[in-house]
Computed example of a mutant assay.
Amino acid sequence: MNSESPKYNAPALDKGLDILEYLSEEGVPLSQAEIAQGINRTPSEIYRMLVCLEERGYVIRESNAGKYRLSLKMYSLSHRHTPFDELKRVAQYPMQALSEITRQSCHLSIMNDNKLLVIYQTRSPSAVSLSIEEGTHFPLSMTTSGRVILSMFPEEEAISILSKDEYYKNWDQERQNTLIETINEIGKLGYRSAKSKLTGGVTDIAVPIGLRGTDLKAVLAVSLFSSNLEDSINLDVILGELKKAQKIINELIGAV
């Protein structure tokens, strides 16, 4: 329980949350008296709240001993929307701004089943541009975004992930070591710009989104025709705008 006085009092809500949190901490069925004692309340104080929580399906009262335990409802609610759903939601505006300023499409990717998965893109306002369709999978080892997301993992874990990559596992030791060195360098620089190994004439520029050591890892990238980059678009400008969008998205998901 929070020892600081709340700015606004909601006694019934406080009691309900105290009950849920205490049952979660204890992890075993508890009687009304045991719950009351654990949250410094009297049994009569929490009776109506327990009845309400039971009726709403948040707690279950066992028929034999009459003790209460948490149901799976909280788990179900928390998994209706994954962290990546929230990431997509908050990334929409910064990505739209990025596309409008750079006149290029941009896309957001995560790792799924040891591959890179594009989960969202915003199209360029220009008449001609590259499009990376949502739902497309790419090999981690062969993509700029894949290498950037691998840079967010400890080296041993990145190698373990790559051991399942269809390309990497067939490479000789020297080529595998070169890729690991590249990934480590990305981790130090905080971005990657390189010509696509899958599509000729395309350059990818990517930055990481999220935090190391958490499950929320993603990559924001701009893919464009290499000729455009050489002729009319400055790499530093695109990278600068990518980092601005990266900062905004990270702030919105609390990854700062």
Score class of each variant (00 low, 15 high):
residue 5 S to M: 02
residue 11 P to A: 10
residue 12 A to P: 02
residue 14 D to F: 14
residue 17 L to C: 06
residue 20 L to K: 14
residue 20 L to Q: 14
residue 22 Y to W: 01
residue 22 Y to T: 01
residue 24 S to P: 06
residue 28 V to A: 02
residue 28 V to K: 08
residue 28 V to D: 03
residue 29 P to R: 14
residue 32 Q to C: 02
residue 36 A to F: 01
residue 37 Q to R: 11
residue 42 T to K: 13
residue 44 S to Q: 12
residue 45 E to W: 00
residue 47 Y to H: 12
residue 48 R to Y: 15
residue 48 R to G: 12
residue 52 C to I: 15
residue 52 C to N: 15
residue 53 L to A: 03
residue 54 E to Y: 13
residue 54 E to H: 14
residue 55 E to N: 12
residue 57 G to C: 05
residue 59 V to D: 02
residue 61 R to P: 00
residue 62 E to K: 09
residue 63 S to N: 12
residue 73 K to R: 15
residue 74 M to T: 00
residue 76 S to T: 14
residue 78 S to F: 05
residue 79 H to C: 05
residue 80 R to V: 01
residue 82 T to G: 09
residue 82 T to S: 14
residue 82 T to Y: 08
residue 85 D to K: 00
residue 87 L to H: 04
residue 90 V to N: 00
residue 90 V to E: 03
residue 94 P to Y: 04
residue 95 M to G: 04
residue 96 Q to C: 01
residue 98 L to D: 10
residue 100 E to R: 07
residue 102 T to L: 01
residue 102 T to G: 04
residue 102 T to A: 00
residue 102 T to K: 06
residue 107 H to K: 03
residue 108 L to H: 02
residue 109 S to P: 00
residue 110 I to A: 00
residue 110 I to N: 03
residue 110 I to Y: 01
residue 111 M to G: 05
residue 114 N to E: 07
residue 115 K to S: 10
residue 116 L to F: 03
residue 117 L to W: 11
residue 117 L to D: 08
residue 121 Q to D: 07
residue 122 T to I: 03
residue 127 A to Y: 11
residue 134 E to K: 14
residue 135 G to T: 13
residue 137 H to T: 15
residue 141 S to T: 11
residue 143 T to I: 05
residue 146 G to Q: 03
residue 146 G to F: 01
residue 147 R to A: 09
residue 148 V to Q: 07
residue 152 M to A: 10
residue 155 E to G: 13
residue 161 I to D: 06
residue 162 L to I: 02
residue 165 D to P: 09
residue 173 Q to V: 14
residue 177 N to W: 09
residue 177 N to T: 10
residue 177 N to D: 11
residue 177 N to G: 09
residue 179 L to Q: 08
residue 181 E to R: 13
residue 182 T to I: 15
residue 182 T to K: 11
residue 183 I to Q: 09
residue 190 G to P: 09
residue 192 R to C: 04
residue 192 R to F: 02
residue 194 A to N: 00
residue 195 K to Y: 05
residue 200 G to V: 02
residue 200 G to A: 12
residue 201 G to K: 08
residue 202 V to C: 12
residue 202 V to I: 11
residue 203 T to G: 07
residue 203 T to P: 00
residue 209 I to E: 00
residue 210 G to K: 07
residue 213 G to V: 05
residue 215 D to Y: 06
residue 218 A to W: 04
residue 219 V to K: 02
residue 219 V to L: 08
residue 219 V to D: 04
residue 219 V to C: 08
residue 220 L to P: 05
residue 221 A to T: 08
residue 221 A to V: 05
residue 222 V to K: 01
residue 222 V to M: 02
residue 222 V to S: 06
residue 223 S to V: 08
residue 224 L to C: 13
residue 225 F to T: 00
residue 227 S to T: 15
residue 228 N to M: 12
residue 228 N to C: 11
residue 228 N to D: 15
residue 230 E to G: 06
residue 230 E to H: 13
residue 231 D to A: 08
residue 232 S to M: 12
residue 232 S to T: 12
residue 233 I to H: 11
residue 237 V to A: 14
residue 237 V to F: 15
residue 242 L to I: 00
residue 243 K to V: 02
residue 246 Q to N: 05
residue 248 I to V: 13
residue 249 I to N: 04
residue 251 E to I: 10
residue 251 E to A: 10
residue 252 L to R: 06
residue 252 L to P: 10
residue 254 G to M: 11
